[in-house]
Amino acid sequence: MIKNFLFLFFNIFFTTQLFSITGEEILKKVDKNLNFNSATMSVRIEIYLPNQPVRVKKFNVWIKGINSYVEFLNKEDKHIRYLKLGKKMWVYDKEEENTFLISGHLLKQGMMGSDISYEDIMESDEVYKKYEIELLGEEQYNSYDCYLILLTSKVKDVSYFRRKMWVSKKHFVPLKEERYAKNGKLLKVYETSELKFYEHRVYPAKSVVSDKLKTDTKTVVIIEQASFDISIPEDYFSRRYLER
């Protein structure tokens, strides 16, 4: 009994002494660094599949708050545009002049055959409110000193029950994230291999996403160009602009 009490006491005492920062505070700093009111980005996606030449997709994205607008540039997809308003997403096929709302269940599909689902893209910062946040400790990842954080879902409507995150102590950018199902199965791994320094933030410039349900596949996301907190006209986030 006394042994248990002492263990609990030392555990609480040393945990608070060792980590002068909590998991919530780390994620708030991550949010502060990564969050922006608006942004435009040119993105290159490289899709690696077993025994296949790499497939490359390119797109420009305009983001404002929870809304975004995407135009593909690679020739096989350049007739496709996306509009996301809040939790809803519309696709426009320029060639057939047809707009349709993407059904909720289809958002789990990989975007344009990549390892990144529409749901992953649509995930908002509010997502952290749905998780219990626990600081597990500190670890090195790719020579960066990192905080290791565990997020465990408090609610049912999340795509991933548990998430393990390695956050750079210096830059407050997640450098690695493992996403798990409720049964403990590893579903996805996000790894950032390059950081880019902007005026007010450090942002991942190159990340690798692996869907662990698929064998030998990975998607590399490269942000070739980005501008943050710039003025974007409101009408970019309308069906009229999508269908223009």
């Binding site: 308003l85 519309w90 057939e96 047809n98 986030f237 309308s238 069906r239 009229r240």
Partner: peptide, 20 residues
């Protein structure tokens, strides 16, 4: 299964972000 075009005059007015 492509669509067949029609010869028409069409006026479309935006009434909200997603309304027309």
């Amino acid at each position: 299964f492509t669509r067949i075009g029609i010869d028409a005059l069409r006026a479309k007015i935006q009434v909200s972000d997603t309304g027309y």
